[in-house]
Structure formats: C-alpha cells, structure tokens
C-alpha cells in the first residue's frame, strides 16, 4: 500500500472492468491486488459451452430473468408464481431454473422439496410439478436440508453451465430464471452463457424502502452494463392491510417515493405493486400456489396483472423478432 496516493481510496477508480480488453493493463490497474489475475484472464475467452447452450436453447421461446440487488424482497416467490401463472395455459410449457446455488428456496416454494433429479441419456431430467411445469435447482442435488453448498465462484459457475447445457429441458415456451441477490458470479455467468441465445429481459423485484431501492438501482446499472433489457419493476410488500381494523400501514415505508418514483427517474416501466399478504408467505412455506389458496386477495389480482403484462411484453418481442427475421430473408 506504500505507493498508494495519500487521501485517495485506491480501489474502483478507473477500473476498466474484468471483461474489458484493458483488464489488468490500464493505468488504474497499477497496484491493484487483482492486476495479475485480470491481465492473465484477458477479455472473456469464448467458452465452447456458449455454442452448445445456444443449440439447446433454440427450442426455448422466451427467457426471463428475475433479479434484484437486494435479498429477501420476494424474487423466488415471484418466480414461482410467475411460473404457476404462465402454466395455467395448458398449451404452454414452462420451466423454472433456480440459480441461487447457496440458498435454493424454489423446491420448498414449489412443494417439491426432497425430490431427486434423474439422469437419462439426454441429460438430467428436471422435476415436474405439473405436466407443463418443470423445475431445476441445486436443492435437488443436496443430501438433506442441512447440506450447505460452500462453493466459491468458479464452482457455482460450473453448476449454472451444467443447468443450461446438461438438463433435458425439451421444448419450452417460457424459461424463468430465479437468481440470488447481488451482481456477481451467478449473474455474470447466466448472462454470459445465454449471450448467444436471446434473453427476452429481466424482471426486477424490489420493496418500497430506500435501503432496498439503493441496491436495486445497482442491479439496473448491472443490466445496462451487460445490455440486458429490463421488462419492468415489481414493487413487493407495498403496504399492509391490518386484518382486524382494515387500515393500511406502510411496513417498509417508501420514504423516497418507492419504486414508482425510481421507475419515473430511470425511465423503466413499473409492472405493478403487490401488497404484503401474510397468506403468501404461508403458502410458500407449505409449497402451495397462493393463486389457488387465496384467489380473491388483492395480492393475487395484482400478481395476475403483472403476469399478463409480462406475457404481452414477450409476445410483442416475439412478433418483432419474427418480423425482423422475415425482413432479413
């Protein structure tokens, strides 16, 4: 640290980013503890798996990532119910992929905890919840509920690659990817591995408080950085109606205007707000869809509206893509 300038924090100033051609070579890299690592890695060498994944993903029509910078805002609950909602149309095949390697909650929320993944000639078979709804998660590969996945980045990335390349997904209309919080290995890997296959976009989940929005803005910046389109933002846990006196309270108060203001400022669509409903958490614990448990709740109708908007977005994308493909032919 001797050569660092006094008074200046040496870290991210002018860092060209690990995937840049300048990685490890820029002036700002001098003295950085990772200089050698970045320089040696160079710009991300193209992984042959990306091509294999592209082949596999040709029969997957829509790919949606569910993201949030913040943990515990409801990514997995949303992913699971987006899958349930889309699978209500029996003509559609829906797949849900959980890439939260250290905290896989999807098996529990989908009511398939303790299931095993079977190996067949064409790869790992996902676990089917319904005929047209299948799930893959690291949770199915663990020996028990106490089993921890204590892995550093490269091992997690290898697992994600396997999920995309080696799972026998079959023909799918919607692939929903549930992610862990943050902007690190898992996020970079999923975007990188799907870089040659088209991703429709990301749905970003937040809660109303500034503490959460602060992390979510970082996630939005991440999307811009990796050129991932944003379908929109969902504000979860927005207000709670007391079951006794029916008066609404803000448990996570939107002191800076909540997701609505953030979306206006950043010019992103707000897909909807979902109120806090204790029954949602309970349904998730029991592995039931709250669509069938509480069909009349305001949270359910809000969820349904959001899902419809996502369907419309994907439909629109699809037809535009078809048009441009026809134009090229």
């Amino acid at each position: 640290m001797a050569e660092a300038e006094p008074g200046a924090a040496p870290l991210p100033h002018g860092c060209p980013g690990t995937s840049s051609v300048q990685a490890g070579k820029a002036a700002a890299c001098q003295g950085c503890p990772n200089q050698r690592l970045c320089a040696a890695a160079g710009p991300a060498a193209s992984d042959p798996a990306i091509e294999e994944i592209k082949e596999k993903m040709k029969i997957v029509k829509h790919k949606i990532l569910v993201l949030s910078g913040k943990g515990g805002v409801g990514k997995s609950t949303f992913s699971a119910h987006l899958a349930h909602g889309l699978a209500e149309d029996e003509t559609k095949q829906v797949a849900l992929l959980d890439i939260d390697i250290c905290g896989p909650s999807i098996p529990k929320i989908m009511g398939i905890e303790g299931e095993q993944v079977h190996q067949s000639g064409s790869g790992w078979s996902p676990v089917y919840v319904e005929e047209n709804l299948c799930v893959m998660s690291v949770g199915f590969l663990l020996s028990g509920p106490d089993d921890a996945v204590i892995w550093r980045g490269p091992k997690k990335n290898g697992m994600i690659k396997q999920f995309l390349r080696d799972v026998d997904w079959g023909e799918i209309d919607y692939l929903i990817v549930d992610t862990p919080p943050g902007t690190s290995d898992e996020h970079l890997s999923i975007v990188q591995y799907l870089s040659s296959s088209h991703i429709d976009g990301a749905v970003i989940i937040t809660t109303p408080q500034e503490i959460s929005l602060q992390d979510v803005r970082k996630e939005i910046n991440f999307c811009h950085k990796v050129k991932l389109p944003i379908i929109g933002v969902v504000e979860n846990m927005s207000g709670f109606v007391c079951p006794k006196c029916k008066i609404e309270s803000q448990i996570f108060p939107p002191t800076t205007g909540g997701a609505e203001k953030m979306c206006q400022n950043l010019n992103i669509s707000l897909l909807g707000k979902v109120p806090l409903e204790p029954q949602i958490g309970k349904s998730c614990d029991e592995g039931q869809s709250f669509f069938s448990e509480i069909p009349e709740s305001p949270a359910t109708s809000s969820y349904r509206n959001i899902i419809q908007r996502i369907q419309e977005y994907c439909g629109l994308q699809h037809s535009q893509e078809k048009l441009s493909n026809q134009g090229m032919e």
Partner: peptide, 19 residues
C-alpha cells in the same frame, strides 16, 4: 469507495476476496 451511490460492483469471486 464508490464514485456514485448507484454504481454496481460487478465483480466475480477473486476480486471480492482481495478486497
């Protein structure tokens, strides 16, 4: 250490470990 509060720290493991 971030220049702007909304800056995303898009780092893989080794870089996080070093910090």
């Amino acid at each position: 250490l971030l220049e702007k509060p909304d800056d995303a720290v898009v780092w893989r493991g080794p870089k996080k470990n070093a910090l």
